[in-house]
């Protein structure tokens, strides 16, 4: 397939995938009377039809929040900027800390540091969030001083420090391990010993011989990194009660037991836009790194 055609496919292809994907809760449900699993395709396709028809009369962009009917466009702006902020900070800080500390971990001999890193990396994101919250509550009960807000009590008074901390910790942790792993592999290569034999300094070898050969792996791994970033996003917006895109979708996906198909579709599409923005940002950032470390 030529590249232009492939690119042209992305938008309708993505739309189709999202439309089908968001159908699941409308299609799959168990019978309230006898508990038999129903696969109700008709229901699913009628929600797609309603959604498409909703473009005409504007119903596609209205949803119920509790008992209020709200316009999607009026609500999404704030949520979008909140999510974009946390994603951008998490992505950029994560990758910077990841590369720098990853290099450090690859050459340092402090085995215990690596062990601690590995131990924390194995804990799922929600455990880290819960443990951070525990820590704050514990400190507050011991000292009587609340260091950070544990979650946002209202939308006007959001928690900031803890969400920022968790949006950085988890991607950075993944990146550190990844960089350290590839650094370790790269450092076994013959061109490293050759550079050493030429009498080049350690720092120089690391940054101008090893790191340029690690960056391609980072680029190839970017989608996985993004996956971790986004998975983490769902969890921490929910647990910290941050009014971002995922919380908007999640807390309103069901109104009075009815599945709001159009809200979920719109929300997922918004997330894809975010994904594209953050991805472009990261590519640009790595491009910058390459310009610095490749002669």
């Amino acid at each position: 397939m030529p590249k232009a055609l492939q690119l042209a496919w992305i938008v309708p292809g993505t739309l189709l995938v999202v439309l089908l994907f968001a159908m699941f809760p409308a299609v799959l449900h168990s019978d309230p009377m006898d508990g038999v699993l129903h696969v109700d395709w008709k229901n699913g396709f009628s929600s797609i039809r309603d959604y498409v028809e909703g473009f005409g009369n504007g119903q596609a962009f209205r949803y119920l929040s509790g008992s209020n009917e709200l316009s999607f466009w009026s609500q999404i702006g704030d949520s979008f900027s909140i999510t974009l902020f946390y994603m951008a900070v998490g992505a950029l800080a994560g990758i910077t800390i990841g590369v720098l500390l990853g290099v450090y971990f690859a050459v340092s001999r402090a085995a215990w540091l690596k062990r601690i890193l590995e131990l924390t990396s194995v804990l799922p994101d929600f455990v880290i969030v819960l443990l951070l919250q525990f820590l704050i509550v514990y400190l507050a009960t011991e000292t009587g001083f609340v260091f950070f807000k544990v979650a946002s009590p209202t939308m006007d008074d959001p928690a900031i420090a803890l969400p920022l901390l968790s949006t950085v910790i988890i991607p950075a942790n993944y990146m550190i391990r990844n960089v350290a792993l590839h650094m370790n592999l790269t450092l076994t290569e013959d061109y490293i010993s050759f550079a050493k034999a030429r009498g080049l300094g350690k720092t120089y070898i690391i940054f101008f011989h090893a790191v340029p050969n690690v960056l391609p792996y980072l680029k190839a791994d970017l989608h996985k990194f993004m996956g971790i970033l986004f998975g983490n996003l769902f969890i921490f917006e929910y647990l910290y009660n941050l009014n971002g895109v995922t919380l908007l979708v999640f807390s309103n996906a069901f109104a009075f037991g009815n599945y709001q198909y159009n809200l979920v579709v719109n929300g997922i599409l918004t997330l894809f836009v975010l994904y594209a923005i953050i991805f472009a940002l990261l590519r640009f950032f790595i491009y910058g790194w390459e310009k610095v470390v490749v002669r």
Partner: peptide, 11 residues
């Protein structure tokens, strides 16, 4: 940037 890669964004 293909569709499959984009789907990786859905956890």
């Amino acid at each position: 940037f293909s569709i499959w890669n984009l789907l990786n964004g859905i956890p």
